[in-house]
Amino acid sequence: MMTSSAQNAIKSSTENTAKTALIVDDSAVIRKVARRILETLDFTVRDAEDGATALAMCAEAMPTVILLDWNMPNMDGYEVLRHLRQAPLGDRPKVLFCTTENDVGAIARALHAGADEYIMKPFDREIMIAKLDQVGFAMRSSEAA
């Protein structure tokens, strides 16, 4: 009765159990803030300041979730995601696009490129929990609602 995309969007999922995160952002401040939040949520965190480094890290060990900045020099988030999804096991990570471009066009483009969710900057811990929950990390069960 519901469209499959909407069903998937709302669907409870517990398929992700390993909690390894890769933060990809050219801003050292954002990397630091995101790392702090993810570590408090029991993620093992690595970070990269550009897309090429991030893809090399993924080739070495694919994380279960990637927080990916949209606007980066040299290789933007769209390019990183395109390469990632073509790489071996590259379809597995849940990718949360993270950007200040808070318009429908940017969101639609990110989803079309293969992003699973979208985080608008600025964000806080609650939003991170909500988004991780939505892509299947069952965060709410371990957090006070």
Binding site: S5, A6, A9, I10, V104, I107, A108, L111, E117, Y118, I119, M120, F123, E126, I127, A130, K131, Q134
Partner: peptide
């Protein structure tokens, strides 16, 4: 962003 899947936001 709290609880609303992005697909439903766009829609």
């Amino acid at each position: 962003q709290r609880g609303l899947p992005v697909q439903l936001l766009v829609k």
